[in-house]
Simulated assay, not measured.
Amino acid sequence: MSAALATAAVATHFAGPWAWGPWFLLIPLFWIALFVILFAVFGRRWRRSAAEIGFGPHGRLNPTRQAEVTLAERYAKGDIDEVEYRARLEVLRANAAS
């Protein structure tokens, strides 16, 4: 009889409505919190690096940065010399500051 009661007690303990206790809620909350933290850290890092490069809010380069990239490409191809490159770059940056 005592073995039957012990078996029933163990079965009730493990098969009750709250068999997992608070862990049932804490484990999903842990994973949700982990993903939120990872997204916050890496999302902020990506947005900061995109802003440093000169990307706008929609992933496109802003017009001033695009003009500088085009000018650098022309200089790399040999279309313009260093003096002209520096002069045009100075004009672009002066107009961007205004």
Rank of each mutant, 00 (worst) to 15 (best):
M1S: 11
F30K: 06
W20P: 07
A8Q: 08
A15V: 08
A87I: 03
W31I: 13
F24E: 12
P28L: 03
P22I: 13
L26Q: 14
A19N: 13
A51K: 01
T64W: 00
W31S: 14
I27M: 11
L71Y: 01
W20Y: 15
F39G: 13
I32Y: 10
V91T: 13
L92H: 02
P57A: 13
A3I: 14
E73F: 05
T12A: 14
W18Y: 14
G78H: 09
A8K: 07
W18A: 15
V41M: 12
Y75M: 06
A76I: 06
A50V: 03
H13N: 10
F30A: 14
Y85C: 04
A6H: 05
I37Y: 11
L26A: 10
R93I: 00
L5Q: 06
A9W: 03
P28V: 04
A8W: 04
S98C: 01
L34C: 09
E82C: 06
R47H: 12
V91Y: 07
W31P: 02
W18G: 13
A97T: 06
A4E: 12
L38F: 14
V10S: 08
D79R: 03
A51Y: 06
S49N: 06
R48L: 02
G54L: 04
L61R: 03
W18M: 15
F39R: 08
S2R: 06
P17K: 10
G16V: 09
L26H: 13
P17F: 00
L34I: 14
R60K: 04
G16Q: 14
T70R: 05
A72R: 12
I80P: 03
